[in-house]
Amino acid sequence: MLIDRIIGVAALLLAAVYLYATAQIPTLEIGDPLGPKAFPRLLGIALIAAAILLFVETLKADKAAEDKAPRGNLHHLWLIGGVTAWTALYFGVFDLAGYLVATTIYLLVLTSVFNRGKRMANILTSVLFALGSYILFVGILGVSLAKGVPPIDAISTGVDSGWKSAVAVAKSMFGR
């Protein structure tokens, strides 16, 4: 199978790069007889051996002569590529736009692509999820999520203080 040969070649290349990078680690001879290079060197050599083993396996498989039809197609590749790029963009503006805004927009686009035709449900899900998860993690669990740069951070601060005053009101109502 062609794909297995490609994996084998990729593994060999990776082993070479890794072994080269290992050789670049500076060593100071103190105490430790092996130093930081020995174990990685073993790993690099083992990866070369594994790649050779894979080539041997492919030879056997070729003799058995079976080839499945390639799975997936170009359309799927575009799809996954698109989602990856969109997610990379989301992560890229995460600090800048803040969790609330970035997540809402990110989800709006994703859901309208993958849950087509249900516009109202998608908008509601995106907004409510971003808001709800922000309150859960920041307000209740005390985990910090990106607020965003001014003036966007006003939204996060607003949600935060809104939640806090809601809790305060609830507490006073139940007399605690």
Partner: peptide, 28 residues
Amino acid sequence: PTGILLSLILAISAIGVYSINGNTLELQ
């Protein structure tokens, strides 16, 4: 709907990773 569910899992993944160190490089 699967389309909504999968989208949400991606967003939850972002929370999970970001909440450890608050680092967007780790997200990437």
